[in-house]
Simulated scan of single mutants.
Amino acid sequence: MSAYSFLKPFTFKNGLVLKNHVVMSPMTTMSSFYNGMLTGDEINYYKARAAGPGMVITGVANVDKLGKGFEGELSVVSDDMLPGLTRLASAIHQQGTKAVLQIFNAGRKTNHKILRGNQPVSASAVAATYPADSETPREMTSEEIDQLILDFGSATRRAIQAGFDGVELHGANTYLLQQFYSPNSNQRTDKWGGSRDNRLRLPLAVIHNVQSVIKQYAPKQFLLGYRLSPEEIETPGIRLEDSLYFVDQIKEQVDYIHLSMASYQRTSLNDKTNKQTLLSQFAAHTKGIVPLIGIGSIEQPADAEAALADGADLVAIGRELLREPQWVQKVASGDEASIRTQISPMDMDELAIPYGLQTFLTTDFTSVMHFTTDADATQDYQNSLAPMEGMEEKL
């Protein structure tokens, strides 16, 4: 029997039990139909990976039509999506694995082509600094903000109906919930902007509405998670102390907090004098109160153990589960020598990676995938942002 601590069961405060401490991190498949409905390719992709981790968090699903961030994106905007979402939850529920649906609105991180002619919306009419051709969004009205809060609740109800075990609010990677908290993208002067507490108002309102929906419709052990990015590099922008303050405000209102970063060994990008890992600094605020999911470049069992030792309660694995769908099973059976930490472009069909995702991995994402054909396949992101965190590939 393996002595790895991450293979032991984990119990949330609400009683939900995971068979191990491993989480499949949310990764977009770029493979849904034009209207956001699930495809068979996506179902097969999750089936190939779901049996090992204790919990699988899906790629993001938009909660309203103006929230779509990219083509091939999953949607949860209407009850028409329920049949596909039900199939997805069932596909993940292999060998007792729990299924969490990640939900979001992209805000200004989209464009009029993806929105079929509509202008993107955000907290304020401020274009993102990257990419360089980012479109200027329209500032949301108070009525639209109120509706957005309800849309997150409706998406949660659908997740419950479809059989998921939880929802995760995607407040990271510079998407809309983060845009409202950021002094870079939120320059409003009404109750939704201005001070840090005012900029926090929308995420809190979404959390509270989702809580009420869970209380009304969900079983007792349904999870509410929140994902956040530790820092922004823009000035002004979210700094580490802002994110730690954010965590302190929500840590007793959610069932877990999930960091978004490409290396679990990441230190501050803005304060080079701060040599502590971001993971350990967040853990100092969450330990004993709310589970913290650590993430980023976890490839070998030693990485997972190190993340737990540094303060994580759960470890999320993303890219490595693309390369090695049987990662957990191989570790548990003592077959670590066969774990692949590189991937050949020729093996992606065999690995049940949908064609849309294959194209994304070999273009925008190639620098972080460790392709066997890539001379720089060992690149890490300990001290920089990676493409999945909302940055251009060159960063």
Results as ranks from 00 to 15, higher is better:
F6H: 04
P9D: 08
F10A: 05
G15N: 06
L16H: 03
L16M: 13
M30I: 11
M37Y: 10
L38Y: 00
L38W: 05
D41H: 13
Y46S: 06
M55C: 15
D64G: 09
L66W: 08
K68G: 02
K68W: 00
G72Y: 03
V77P: 02
S78A: 06
D79R: 10
M81D: 13
S90A: 15
I92F: 00
Q95T: 11
F104L: 12
N105V: 03
N111V: 03
L115M: 04
N118A: 14
P120Q: 05
V121E: 12
A123K: 00
S124L: 02
S134M: 00
R138A: 10
E139V: 00
M140G: 02
E144W: 01
S154T: 14
H170K: 02
N173S: 13
L177E: 02
Q178P: 04
Y181G: 10
S182Q: 07
T189F: 09
W192P: 02
G193T: 06
R196H: 05
D197H: 07
D197A: 13
R199V: 03
L204E: 03
N209G: 06
Q211M: 09
V213F: 01
I214A: 09
I214K: 10
R227H: 03
L228P: 02
S229M: 01
P230I: 02
E231P: 07
E232W: 01
E232D: 12
P236V: 07
R239T: 12
Y245D: 14
K251D: 10
Q253S: 15
D255G: 10
I257N: 05
M261T: 07
A262C: 11
A262M: 10
S263C: 09
T267R: 15
S268A: 01
S268L: 03
D271G: 04
N274H: 09
S280F: 01
F282T: 08
H285V: 14
K287I: 10
I289P: 07
P291G: 07
L292C: 08
G296T: 08
Q300G: 00
A304K: 00
E305P: 01
A309G: 09
A309E: 13
D310A: 15
A316V: 07
R319L: 10
R319E: 12
E320T: 14
E320W: 01
V328T: 11
V328H: 07
A332W: 03
A332C: 08
G334Q: 07
G334C: 07
D335M: 11
A337N: 13
A337P: 09
R340M: 13
R340K: 15
M346G: 09
D347E: 15
E350H: 12
L357I: 02
T359I: 13
F365D: 11
T366I: 11
D374S: 03
L385F: 15
G390Y: 04
